[in-house]
Design a protein around this nucleic acid. Structure first.
Lengths: 217, 217
DNA sequence: GTAGTACTAGACGGTACCGTACCTTACCAT
DNA sequence: ATGGTAAGGTACGGTACCGTCTAGTACTAC
């Protein structure tokens, strides 16, 4: 009864949309846990508390569901991570970069993002276009935005970066590599405390500032 | 007939050993191409030109074969990549690091190593200990050796690195991240020419030298 | 209330795969 | 040459899974 009230067509998403969302969430969970080949559609249906028929009414087959899951997570993730560096346009460059680095690293190291990355890397052979999407909307976009910001910041200090894109990617390297490589191979999603991640971000930024001649002020 | 002559027990490996090697190689190929779940034992047997019975005579089951394949590749790979930096103990630090970086990056970017990394990352959930092995014998060992070398080199220049391990990992970050992240997600094993890789190695080393105050001489 | 749509539950055909069993064939030592 | 061991070929039991089908049930709209 509650459900029918909640589904009052004034604002609530239609039942179809709700089922669809439940399936997507369940599929995400199952695919993240077992990979594409290891996941079964029965398992997805059971996890979503939905009949298999309904799954196939919303998604034509396993591959389509998988693609939808991945692109969905990429889309959601993308909104949260990359955009809010340029918004903090003022202040000393060191502080701005540290703040960006901490936020970015925390975003990349979220369990779901890690699982997604692992999944995409593992299925690169079967779904090349998903790796492309992930790369374009993740690292590539971040590097581009960062490159612009770095060029401006450098100009404001009277420096000129000869290759802002490279500088941006070096900064990302210094921030991400150590914890990300470790967690990718060792697989424990929760092995880093927030404080440890902040520390990696900070020392990465410091090394970057030294390498590219920014004065920290 | 030739085969029987070649198997003359003076020096040739026994038939069993040869079959075993053929199975391992075939399994490597099949696992690399399709992942653990996606690979079938029939396919392995067929690729090795061996009956399935023989496969199961040498390896108790699919998991054991998989473990053997991975640890085997890790062992082989390990011999080739990390060890020969300390051997070039003399010369200017910039040159030594550049030479190491080029060699190391080329080693890491070999198709088989990339496929192995992708496989290990993808199967971290099912085989955590393989990720551990890969990490210990790969990045971890390299970072440790590199840390020692960097500390010595710094001392020779009158510098003191407060955290040589961190410096080593920053160097590896700068060298590896850009091409490795790209190829992991985009999946084309041959997308970088040797010259492009050398360039990534060189600019990474340069940034490192600037960040850590080494004089290039 | 009633027609129509979305969903549930379970079964099924077809296929693929793991690991084993059975029997035949090639090889090696004596 | 001959017996014994390793390997080949193949079929099989059991299981799991995908995608479909059928039949019955809850919900929505008029």
């Amino acid at each position: 009864m509650d459900s029918s009230v909640a589904a009052d067509n004034a604002e609530g998403p239609s039942r179809g949309a709700r089922k669809r969302a439940a399936i997507l969430e369940a599929a995400q969970q199952v695919f993240f846990a077992h990979g594409f080949v290891g996941a079964s559609m029965d398992q997805v249906a059971a996890t979503a508390s939905v009949s298999k028929q309904t799954v196939y009414k919303h998604f034509s087959d396993k591959e389509a569901l998988f693609r939808e899951v991945v692109t969905n997570v990429v889309r959601v993730r993308d909104g949260g991570i990359a955009t809010d560096f340029l918004s903090t346009g003022d202040g000393p460059i060191g502080e701005r970069l540290r703040s960006f680095a901490r936020h970015f690293l925390k975003g990349v190291m979220q369990p779901n993002v890690l699982k997604l990355r692992r999944l995409v890397i593992g299925e690169t052979g079967r779904f090349p276009e998903l790796g492309q999407s992930f790369y374009d909307l993740g690292p590539r976009r971040a590097a581009q935005q960062l490159a612009l910001a770095l060029r401006d910041a450098a100009a404001r200090q009277g420096l000129s970066l000869e290759d802002p894109k490279l500088a941006a990617e070096h900064l990302l390297s210094l921030i991400l590599w150590i914890p990300l490589n470790q967690v990718m191979l060792l697989g424990d999603e929760n092995s880093f405390t927030d404080a440890a991640l902040d520390r990696y971000a900070d020392v990465g930024v410091s090394a970057f500032l030294r390498a590219y001649g920014f004065s920290d002020g």
